[in-house]
Design a protein around this nucleic acid. Structure first.
Lengths: 341, 341
DNA sequence: ACCTTACCAGAAAGCGCTTTCTGAAAGCGC
DNA sequence: GCGCTTTCAGAAAGCGCTTTCTGGTAAGGT
């Protein structure tokens, strides 16, 4: 069904039919209702491609690039994006990179081809020369051509609007809270260091400890997944030397894996060892003990990032930053350190 | 940057430039590389809308409609869909209905307008007259026009391809396994009865019990969320009468809430009461005790449903069904019933 | 040397819309 | 009643591509 057919059915011109349905200009009421009736009768569905091609203001879609929708952190943010998009009748094109930088760049290119109104990058931020160059090469012309880009996470080089969780400050706060509980011996379970998020949280935690004159000498690296956390915790326990009294996993997802590993090794949490994470994904509240973490308002972050992207670009070309504070939430997984230690 | 500009830069015609980049017909090698070079130089990005409009075979997008991405059940399936889509260079347009039937219909309409190659409905299946009529009215012309539709869940009226978890059989199996543990007094925490999934699981559980000559007389209804499960469990405990020794929540998400409610009420699981769910979303393994449930291969279901949709429509117009078996997984949340009971 | 194939580049016709431009009809003041 | 503005419908020009169709050139057959 084309608009042409509708116009013919209604006995008006193509132009009138278009105007009647889109309501942009005044059309006589009787003609408008005749067109509407004809469209209903014929089951007319406009062709969004033709519309996008013909009209000046692009189409009603935004692109959302994340690592993996089944990761609760992204799912939380994505949910916020979707809700905001739904309110504005926007369709979201979702792309999962599965953590491959090359795929991320390819997706930006695809979204550019789709003339997405905005491109949102969630939890991106590889610290990788090739990725940065490629990403810049894609994003720069896009922005220059009026495309909007917004990112959740810090970006070293890209001059785009960002929603930035205060990873550094949050981790520092957490460290101080843990020190206040009496801990002195810490270990951190960290992720791929090329992600800015990881680097910031680790640095922040170090800072927080440093303020109490404590140095961090146990850092175990693992993949950014539950299994990564599990493995990292096992490696921590296996490595000799005095056991830390408190472990910080840089993401809740890793902390979940770590908790399982500790339990399997017979380490009681928090009696023998305290454990904390970061993000406050929904599941951590269900663990026993529930996890101490730094809470981030994930849904709100999603809403913020899409709002940021959709706002008209700032005149001076300065990139805007929305800072999101994390809140330390002490739960059952942390307690005072064991006496003997 | 338009193709026209690229063609001019390369000193060839528009048609040649198009053919050179898409590689559909033979083009002399030197011309092809000249076009490629020109496209690179100018940073040419094709306009997907123009392509879709001009070419016969639509565009490279599929639509995915689900209730909420932040629900782990959908996230698991969506992850499978995304992975399969990525392999075929398809972009996924995701729409969250937040459980509003009207929104679901509106999204189908939007996806039709976008000329999505396929429309996937996950966990849909309202049993609601108005919804069915509206959905049919959208889907029918779409399919007739060559659009593909596939659904996860059973559909009463819609003649579309479906991926169907064996909800009924799975719940029946679960019931038998629980009876085998010694339980005789059951309660079910159920969701909105207009969802076929709920109806099937409840019916299946009843059947399984019936085979052991046990009747189910405690059914508490709640929302299809963690909070719904929490509230339903609280209501169950509050209602007088003898307590059941075993509770089945029709989804794991509800079971998670129920477990929290039981714990808050001082009911030990499984010593005082056993608890089981359905779906095997990742989180249930992390609970203590880990949840007994009926495992569904969520990622695989996602891959199946998109594969189903993308296959050419079956000649006879018969709708295909892929049945997915659930597997009962007994974990720590279920045990023998308490003695005194 | 001539005619037939084969191959491939270019011209041009759309795809289904939006939007400007043009013009007819109607309303207004004098 | 005449020329003015105002209102609104229709004609037509694209938007940026793909894809026929046409035609020119080189290769192959006799």
């Amino acid at each position: 069904m084309t608009l042409d057919a509708v116009a013919r059915e209604a006995g008006v011109s193509l132009a009138t039919a278009s105007r009647a349905l889109n309501g942009t200009t005044r059309v006589r009421d009787d003609l408008r209702s005749r067109v509407r009736a004809a469209a209903d009768l014929l089951g007319y569905i406009p062709n969004a491609h033709a519309q996008a091609l013909a009209s000046s203001d692009g189409n009603r879609t935004v692109g959302l690039i994340c690592h993996d929708v089944s990761d609760p952190y992204f799912a939380g943010i994505a949910s916020g994006v979707m809700r905001a998009a739904a309110e504005q009748d926007l369709l979201v094109m979702l792309a999962s990179t599965f953590r491959e930088p090359a795929r991320e760049i390819a997706y930006v290119s695809m979204l550019r081809a789709q003339r997405a109104r905005a491109i949102l990058l969630i939890g991106s931020g590889f610290q990788d020369r090739a990725w940065e160059r490629g990403m810049d090469a894609e994003l720069d012309p896009y922005v220059r051509a009026g495309g909007r880009v917004a990112v959740v996470s810090r970006h070293r080089s890209l001059r785009v609007d960002t929603v930035q969780p205060e990873n550094r400050a949050g981790a520092a706060e957490l460290a101080k809270a843990l020190v206040a509980l009496g801990h002195r011996e810490f270990a951190v379970l960290t992720g791929p260091p090329e992600l800015t998020t990881v680097a910031d949280r680790l640095a922040g935690f170090r800072e927080g400890l440093a303020q109490a004159g404590i140095s961090l000498d146990r850092v175990v690296r693992g993949a950014f997944t539950r299994e990564g956390g599990h493995l990292a915790a096992r490696r921590l326990l296996a490595s000799g030397g005095p056991r830390p009294t408190c472990v910080f996993a840089v993401t809740d997802v890793m902390a979940v894996g770590a908790l399982a590993a500790l339990r399997e090794a017979g380490v009681r949490v928090p009696e023998d060892m305290s454990l904390a994470g970061f993000d406050d994904i929904p599941v951590v509240r269900e663990l026993s003990p529930p996890l101490t973490t730094v809470a981030l308002p994930l849904t709100e972050m999603g809403e913020r990032v899409i709002a940021l992207a959709l706002r008209t670009p700032s005149g001076a070309g300065r990139s805007r930053v929305v800072r999101i504070d994390g809140e330390v939430v002490l739960r059952g997984s942390t307690g005072r350190p064991p006496h003997g230690s």
